[in-house]
Simulated assay, not measured.
Amino acid sequence: MARPRRRSMYPSWFFLPAGVFYVVLFLIPTGASLYFALTRWTLFDSEFIGFDNFVAFFQDPALSTGFVNTFVFAAVTSALKVVLGMALGLLLSAQIIGRGFLRSVVFFPVLVSTIGVGITFKVLLDPFDGLVNRVIEFFGATGPGWLTDPALALLSVAFVDVWKGVGLAALIYIAGIVAIPQEYSEAARVDGASAWHHFRHITLPLLRPATVTVVLLSLIGGLRSFDLIWAMTKGGPGFTSDVIASVIYKQYQAGFFGLSTAGNVILFLVVAAIIFPLSAWLNRKETEL
């Protein structure tokens, strides 16, 4: 009777570098964060205080505003990136003049530094000397305080975030549109389907994987957003454009390192609690189609 051949471990060694990076760059920092969130620590010592940091963080008066703003910011930016990204993807997949150049123009903001974009738009949206309000004044109207009006500051930053990130969404949609087999379009033309029916019954359903990807990436980015908000408003005026990440950073600036670490853990749990169930639900819906 022939002895069964032992399975070689050779292919498994290729996973070792990725596993090392995962442990060193994710598991160890995550474990350290969970521990230090339960301490009052500085660079030189730490004192275990249990869940006191979490209790103090939730008692922060700016936290409730930060929570609401985080969800508003993520919802607005995600919805606009899906709609505008799909529209640009459809446009830039069509046979139009200068298609390659237009694709480069749309994607270019993705490559620009977020801090640089924030500083640039902070200057452009200045209520007194900004170019945007000067153009509005040229037509006889008065421009609002885009970043100084509590009702507009968060939405102004959200629109800038959409401008910067919609190119990536458009690129994902272009890839999805190009992957659609031409046989569907040819069959629709033979059946006399209108452009709307072609989009509604062929393009939109077959772009579902691209839409799921854009939704998840946009939500993760929106829930974790910090750098653009900090560069443009620093959470102001007052606390009206604060998000969870900016509240955490302000605690860190004030020297409450354990408190800010607890905030990071809370942010991680919030993102995970939203993204993992949403991803499972969207992917399950996709398999049911």
Rank of each mutant, 00 (worst) to 15 (best):
F58R: 08
R3Y: 01
N69G: 08
F128D: 14
A151Q: 14
I28A: 08
S12E: 12
V76W: 05
V112S: 03
L282S: 05
D52K: 14
W163Y: 12
I97W: 15
A158E: 11
F57Y: 14
K164W: 08
F44R: 12
F14D: 04
V215G: 08
A62Y: 09
P205F: 09
I266R: 00
F256V: 00
I229C: 04
G165T: 07
F67P: 01
L204C: 08
V55W: 13
A74L: 09
G176I: 11
S46A: 15
F21R: 02
N283F: 13
G167W: 02
A151M: 09
T240E: 13
L111I: 15
G236R: 00
R99W: 07
F268G: 13
A94D: 15
D45A: 13
F36W: 10
L171C: 01
D126W: 02
V106N: 10
L88R: 01
G89Q: 07
F48V: 13
A273C: 06
G89P: 08
A87V: 13
T120M: 14
A272I: 13
I177S: 06
A254V: 01
W196P: 00
F67H: 02
V123D: 08
F128T: 12
I172S: 02
S246G: 04
A170P: 03
L223K: 08
H197S: 10
W281Q: 09
G192T: 05
A195K: 11
G176D: 07
V166G: 08
P127R: 04
F159P: 05
P127F: 02
A94H: 13
G145S: 14
I274W: 02
G130W: 03
L168P: 00
Q182A: 15
G222P: 10
L289Y: 01
Y252E: 04
I136K: 03
A262R: 03
I220C: 06
A56N: 15
D126M: 04
P277S: 04
A2V: 01
N53E: 07
F73Q: 06
V23G: 11
F71I: 10
A175I: 01
L43C: 00
L124W: 09
G31H: 02
L289D: 07
F121D: 05
